[in-house]
Design a protein around this nucleic acid. Structure first.
Lengths: 335, 335
DNA sequence: CTGAAAGCGCTTACAG
DNA sequence: CTGAAAGCGCTTACAG
């Protein structure tokens, strides 16, 4: 422990009790102005900064929000974390970022009062954990799933709707054989987008074909491999368009097609989801569903703080994505 | 304050004193095995998780590192923050990310014992602040400048050397008129790279020309504007190559040249610094100096923890960048 | 081997 | 308006 200035030093310097110092510093309106001035001056003279730990132990509050995730790599997290941190600061909170795959670390910091509430993007946490979180009356907002409990809310994208919308868009461009490049089974956005795809096909009277389902794992490499394997192993009944589970896997598809000397969109159309920043650097401009990532972060913080303040019960928010036309989809001329 | 299980509950449940609970839980080898077992069982039964605040207040440690920065947007920070967080976890620390431009927020959280030490990437903090940090015996590692004090170290890239190296590379390709696209004056990497550029020119006997200095502000838009203005306003004595202060501004230069219907590298060569991930998506492949960003994060954490543990005094580390040849530079054919 | 007590730095009823 | 005291949840000399 470094020898920091404590409330006692200030009290001595100002010639009052520590109780009075506390009141003066916290703007509790009982202190005589002259006394208050003396205290404030003394505090300044000594460069006093309150030790948050003492404060917290007493109040039970940390004024910290925890953001828990397995990884922040990839283009999705940078704007998300920034939005979260900025919004939190506005509301008087700091943000603790925990990048860990160790469930115990997560549990301990939640239960150990390290933070007042949590924002979760964490596959590891299952329904049972969420039940425990609710039971302990911990405020939490999840952004990787839909869930609503007394102290737990969520903010997700309308991935079912946009999955349908994206598929309909491809259908409207004349595509009838549309491959779907999935992310991970069990992951909300992945499942929802796929379900939307299925629904759109069904409404259009087009049967779902198993061969047209590739695994892209939401990343570039897997998608690249998947499309390469697919086109080299399967010799007929090719799709005319690929709907990828997210932009990264769409990029993988485009690169894979390029590697086999096909052109996008001349030979195949490709579409993604998310609207990540780096699309700006990629050719061709990808047609995608742009999701409001920053808004997700901001709303998650707001809702979480409301939960912490007991202003509301957990709610489930759904944010709308919008179609952005690029140059990676063209009208289908094949029959 | 939620009604969490405290050490008292465990003590009651196990039929011992809170002191014994504390010792049993912290593996202090004085407790009779049978007693310890009883305590551990009771703790498990009650789902006891120690309140870190109590612990911290006593120990004066938070086991938290603070990462302070104005922004984490841009492609540099995502791998940096991830590396920092992962390395910290390995060493038993959590990471607090503060994205703020409010100096008071920074000072308060440093002085208020929110964290055990800090990693700083923060223009706002000046030499005076660093002196204060040292005076308060706060452990800190800066990654945006070179500085060494008793409790303060730094981890930077060898930007002077690579600035020279990059310039020499362009010279070796026959370029004699090399424009430099600066970042911000006063920012370490920017100044050092420029100084290296100056030195290389001098050694080659090429005079520094003021007209060949553009302002790129380390970002794409400003660089785009700068090159556009330059080429439209200046009608002769054009450079044959642009050395940009970082990759983002190099991208801006390339896009600006493209917008004026010039080709890279046919008409102009362009080179950057950093080797950020998104170069993978950009055409043409940019020739750049690749800096070990993850290593910077890991080393910063290591050094910081050593400082916290009083194992060392502040040191200044310099990490080597290496030249990566892309397709954005070609031999100069003009005289 | 175990426990009562002091104390980490603060806030907040309560008394004066 | 001010201060002595209790207490937040823990750890750690110290006594037994």
């Amino acid at each position: 422990m470094k020898n920091r200035v404590t409330i006692h030093d200030v009290a001595k310097e100002a010639g009052v009790s520590i109780a009075t110092v506390s009141k003066a510093l916290n703007d509790i309106n009982v202190v005589k102005p002259a006394t208050k001035a003396r205290v404030l001056e003394a505090a300044k003279r000594l460069h006093y900064v309150p030790n948050v730990m003492g404060k917290q132990l007493k109040s039970g509050e940390t004024k910290m929000l925890g953001f828990y995730t397995n990884t922040i790599s990839g283009p999705y997290f940078s704007p998300l974390v920034e939005a979260i941190a900025k919004e939190a600061e506005k509301l008087g909170y700091g943000v603790n970022v925990f990048i860990t795959s160790d469930k115990q670390v997560i549990i301990n910091s939640i239960m150990g009062n390290v933070v007042d509430g949590i924002i979760g993007f964490e596959d590891l946490i299952d329904e049972q954990d969420i039940a425990a979180i609710e039971h302990e009356q911990i405020s939490a907002v999840f952004i990787d799933r839909k869930t609503t409990r007394k102290t737990v809310g969520s903010v997700v994208f309308d991935s079912f709707t946009t999955g349908e919308k994206a598929t309909n868009y491809l259908l409207s461009q004349g595509h009838k054989r549309i491959a779907f490049v999935s992310g991970f089974q069990g992951v909300y956005d992945s499942d929802e987008r796929f379900a939307g795809y299925c629904k759109a096909l069904k409404l259009a009277g087009i049967p779902l074909e198993k061969e047209l389902l590739l695994e892209g794992k939401f990343e570039e490499k897997a998608a690249f491999q998947a499309v390469e394997n697919f086109l080299t192993q399967q010799k007929n009944n090719w799709p005319t368009a690929f709907l990828a589970g997210n932009d990264l896997s769409a990029i993988g598809i485009v690169k894979g097609l390029k590697a086999l000397n096909y052109k996008v969109p001349q030979d195949f159309s490709v579409m993604g989801f998310d609207g990540i920043d780096l699309l700006e650097y990629f050719e061709p401009k990808l047609t995608t569903i742009k999701n409001p990532i920053e808004e997700q972060g901001r709303l998650a913080v707001h809702h979480l703080v409301d939960l912490i303040d007991n202003k509301t019960q957990g709610k489930s928010f759904e944010l709308k994505g919008r179609l952005v036309e690029g140059k990676s989809v063209k009208k289908c001329e094949r029959k």
